[in-house]
């Protein structure tokens, strides 16, 4: 009973997020306001950019206005919340402990990877991820030690966004997610589904019933860990076109991961 209540609550949260996303999507991108009376630039866009040429930088981004606002929001969150939390975590928690915590939670993600490899009918990855999960959960003492990598079962990341991509679902509009950064409609749906799978697993299979606080801790830790692994810093690329570049890199990177 309690589980289904929590699931309903989680589902409500996703719906709320989507509604907010849709409302925000009302703001469209602001084009540059070129002053009417000025002479054209020495190399105006209209002379260089052609209609019949395809530019990789043109990723489908109908919600660019909203996305750019969220990009800036994320940069501020990074500066004032995420990076300071990360720094404190790295400064005050010793390395062996951080690694243990990292391994323990990563092991749970191996479960998600196994499910998604299976859904993509990928025998090799399913076996790899399944054996990884099993060996780390047992010999690796509930995942605290990563013994599987040494045994020849490295992490092979497969998420539900990749699963949908495998089955031919297009990426849809580009979305910048609050805190999490670059995504698209397909991968955002995938993220919500994975969230659901792992929540279900944690609540039902690990005997965590009645300890939902633990679940929130899991996602907090997931956030810190995910941020820690990426050396990226907002606005340090030295490029005024960082938003466009990240958009292209995310989109291309996902294509490679999905193997389209």
């Amino acid at each position: 009973m309690k589980n289904s209540f929590i699931k309903t609550a989680l589902l409500r949260q996703y719906i709320l997020i989507f509604v907010v996303l849709l409302l925000l999507s009302a703001c469209s991108a602001v084009p540059p306001q070129e002053a009417a009376h000025e002479e054209p630039a020495m190399h105006p866009v209209s002379d260089i950019v052609k209609d019949d040429v395809i530019y990789p930088i043109d990723v489908y981004d109908p919600w660019e206005g909203m996305n750019r606002h969220i990009y800036i929001f994320n940069a501020h969150m990074d500066d004032y919340v995420l990076l300071p939390v990360l720094e404190a975590y790295q400064n005050y928690v010793p390395f062996f402990l951080r690694r243990g915590i990292h391994n323990f939670y990563s092991n749970l993600t191996s479960f998600e990877h196994t499910v998604n490899s299976g859904l993509q009918l990928n025998g090799e990855a399913t076996a790899n991820n399944g054996l990884r999960f099993l060996s780390n959960s047992t010999i690796g003492l509930f995942g605290v030690f990563d013994v599987a990598t040494g045994m020849g079962f490295p992490e092979m990341k497969e998420d539900f966004g990749q699963t949908m991509g495998y089955w031919g679902v297009g990426e849809g509009p580009y979305i910048v997610l609050p805190l999490l950064g670059p995504s698209n409609l397909r991968d955002t749906t995938g993220l919500a589904t994975d969230f659901f799978i792992i929540s279900d697993f944690l609540l039902n299979e690990t005997g965590m019933n009645g300890n939902e606080g633990w679940l929130y801790f899991y996602y907090m830790r997931y956030g810190v860990d995910a941020r820690a692994k990426v050396p990226f810093r907002y606005y340090e690329s030295g490029s005024p076109f960082e938003y466009e570049t990240m958009r292209l890199l995310y989109t291309s990177g996902r294509k490679v991961m999905i193997g389209e």
Binding site: A29, P32, I48, I57, E64, R68, P240, E244
Partner: peptide
């Protein structure tokens, strides 16, 4: 401004 799209200028 802060959120002006610069995509066209990035191409040129």
């Amino acid at each position: 401004g802060k959120t002006t799209s610069l995509t066209e200028y990035s191409k040129s």
